[in-house]
């Protein structure tokens, strides 16, 4: 750009000089010659500028552009790392929602059977990781509680209480038991759930929880 700037400056000087010469020279047949000389000067100035442009090393300005861009932009590795962190968090969030969604589904399906009371469902996932991140259901654990009517049934047949003085203190199991009918119903539900999720029956586990105070 400096060459063009110099050319423009030279042209301004030549034109202004030509204008003043035109005014200062006496009227006569000198004017065409002055115009001719000044025109030649302009041509020389333009040719000089063109030769300067041709001799210039154009590639010298290219490293400045790339160096400037590197200095002002963060490296691509840093950007990809930051993006992958967000991506990983997104996947974890989706996984958590998937787990809770499956748990809700299992709970709802188990709720269709009036013979059992599923209080909690735990879903264990097998996250293989990797690029294609295959998600498998490792196991489903249903926590089945004793139903209220189970306790009421048991309340009718309270075993006789024996008091023996002098014997060591023994933990007395006063909590209501899970009936065999509940167990049978829970197993049936577990089998249905396993079928529904295309799992083997041993992957749907049942945990029995005996609730205190008849709750």
């Amino acid at each position: 750009m400096d060459i063009i700037k110099d050319l423009v400056q030279t042209l301004i000087i030549i034109v202004v000089l030509a204008v003043f010469l035109e005014m200062l020279l006496p009227q006569g047949n000198m004017n065409p010659y002055v115009k001719m000389v000044m025109g030649l000067l302009i041509i020389i100035a333009v040719l000089h500028a063109i030769s300067g442009l041709l001799q210039q090393n154009w590639l010298s300005s290219v490293p400045d552009v790339t160096a400037g861009s590197k200095a002002n932009s963060p490296p691509v590795e840093e950007i990809i790392d930051n993006g992958k962190k967000i991506q990983s968090k997104n996947k974890d969030l989706a996984l958590e929602k998937y787990r809770s969604g499956i748990a809700c589904q299992v709970k709802s399906m188990a709720g269709l059977n009036p013979q059992i009371d599923v209080v909690d469902v735990k879903v264990l996932l097998d996250d293989s990781g990797g690029k294609a991140r295959k998600i498998n259901i490792k196991s489903i654990i249903m926590v089945v509680a004793s139903k209220k009517h189970d306790h009421e049934d048991e309340a009718g047949s309270i075993p006789p209480v024996e008091i023996n003085v002098g014997e060591p203190e023994r933990a007395c199991d006063t909590s209501p038991k899970i009936t065999s009918e509940t167990k049978k119903a829970a197993k049936k539900t577990a089998a249905s759930i396993a079928d529904f999720y295309n799992l083997s029956t041993d992957k749907v586990l049942i945990e029995y929880q005996v609730m205190e105070g008849g709750r």
């Binding site: 030549i14 034109v15 202004v16 030509a18 204008v19 035109e22 115009k35 025109g39």
Partner: peptide
Amino acid sequence: VSSLSSQF
């Protein structure tokens, strides 16, 4: 600059 003179 061109408008300075009608000649040049």
